[in-house]
Design a protein around this nucleic acid. Sequence first.
DNA 1: TTAGTATGAATGAATG
DNA 2: CATTCATTCATACTAA
Lengths: 223, 223
Amino acid sequence: MELQTQQQLELQAQQPTEEGGSNQAAGSSANTPIRPTTIRWTPTPAQLRILQGLYYDKGYKYPSPEQIQEICLYLKPYGEIEDKNVFFWFQNLKARERLKLKEFRNVRVGGSLDLNFGSTSSTDDGRSIDLNFGSTGSTGDDGSIDLTLGSQSFMERRGGDHQEVETLPLFPEHGENILGNPKTTSEGGSSFGYYFGGSGGYNSGSPVSLELSLNPSGATDLA
Amino acid sequence: MELQTQQQLELQAQQPTEEGGSNQAAGSSANTPIRPTTIRWTPTPAQLRILQGLYYDKGYKYPSPEQIQEICLYLKPYGEIEDKNVFFWFQNLKARERLKLKEFRNVRVGGSLDLNFGSTSSTDDGRSIDLNFGSTGSTGDDGSIDLTLGSQSFMERRGGDHQEVETLPLFPEHGENILGNPKTTSEGGSSFGYYFGGSGGYNSGSPVSLELSLNPSGATDLA
DNA sequence: TTAGTATGAATGAATG
DNA sequence: CATTCATTCATACTAA
């Protein structure tokens, strides 16, 4: 892999997230006699299947918090799970797919590099998660390199591969009001656009004489 | 009910990150061919403590741009930092706290999760896990959701230990705070229990009167 | 055992 | 303010 000098100079205690590690779905499957010493959540096969089904089959790429919760609740019977697990699961899956696509493109340009996808090493039997790349438009290998991704606004916005897959009847929970002109958010608050813009004095009449009274009792603040 | 074994495992804290060594020293240097260490800002422990102290202890949830600058200036000696870092930090913390709370509040789930994707199931894949959930209150455990939301869910703060923020020597304890809610949490440091000021922006001209006394001794930042 | 990989978790950054 | 992207760390799991 493209493992670069992975140096961790600044390490921020990333830590435990006191969550019960108990997994082992109370579910039906009797397999997966995993050790009960799981710190982080590990989706049970059933949960995984369902999640993947939602993502791939149903096309739920961007579940809202409400949906996340529903999914979580639904998955509860299949094993210990929390909202954040679902949340992260979707986040990660999206991120990794995007990652792969990006690498794929790079590889293609470079010439022929070996990339070994697949081999998901899925201990599970059934479902094979096939990652279908080249979802964006043509994907024809006719040699025409069409990186029609550019022309993003001003700043470079990452891959513009938003799903927009299809309009499937998602959760019948509540109709999302799709306003044609959702520009109703009154801005002007703390958008801090001036940080980037760098222009404008923005010295509005907010003379908050904010004074930090610090008692630097020991700058070399021992950790 | 899913009774998760609350096994508080002893987490080894990797390594005590020295705060003094501010990362990303690049920038000042003319041109370091070396790989720029860490593109994005990573708060040093000291900075983190201070920020958390401001947020939790003092209750600064909506720092004005001016305040942000002050904070940033104050944090400078503790490591490389910019205004936008502070801004983002507060934004993110607020957003995530809110999300966290949202999950709690949201106890109302229709339970009508419409995921009927039993497609590849074929006739029988060996597993007897029913993937058909209907909102029709099936007697199964899927339809009936137990609203056992007693435990913390979704994005809990990392690390059970909230660090020793309480001994924040800086920041005068003025009874006044930006939003008027002197949470003044005790040593607990639990962050819950905030009120929503509304999306109207913070109160300009906040009564905060901190005194800025930058300690010129940038010794912390060992060169 | 160690190494490598897959992936959960966390968070800074950014956009609308 | 909400949502999402990107990057990184930490760990579960598998292979050599």
